[in-house]
Amino acid sequence: MVMVPVVDYLRLEPEPHLCAHECTSCGARFFDRRNACAACGGQGFVDAAVATDAVVTAFTIVGFAAPGIEVPFVAAILDCGGTTVQANLRNVTPDADHVRLGMPVRLTTFSMGEDTAGNEGIAFAFEPAEQGGNA
């Protein structure tokens, strides 16, 4: 059985973390396949591990989404040590009393289930950093 990350910028080894394409000229970070750097036009990139500890700088609690997506869920924008990341929040009650701006969170991974070949999809999210905090 092979573990397949939900997106290629989720790296599972040695410990789960996100990996950005970092421009070798200006340091701008991107998560998608790049043609060049949007900040400076540079064409050289290196892999850069993104911090797994983060702070919530924006969030929304989505109550209406396309079919197939479970609601409500918490979508958030995170500051991962200076790199902006988008993710869902997990292991937190999805209401404005439990999710708050500035709350510390950390990366977590979970199974998306197995495909017909027996390979396991692995998704990521962020969860409150405080143990047993406000979940």
Binding site: V4, V6, A87, A123, F124
Partner: peptide, 13 residues
């Protein structure tokens, strides 16, 4: 981003 599933709702919105 080499996604194995639609990302809307799974990785933010």
């Amino acid at each position: 981003v080499g996604a194995i599933a639609p990302t809307d709702g799974r990785i933010g919105t």
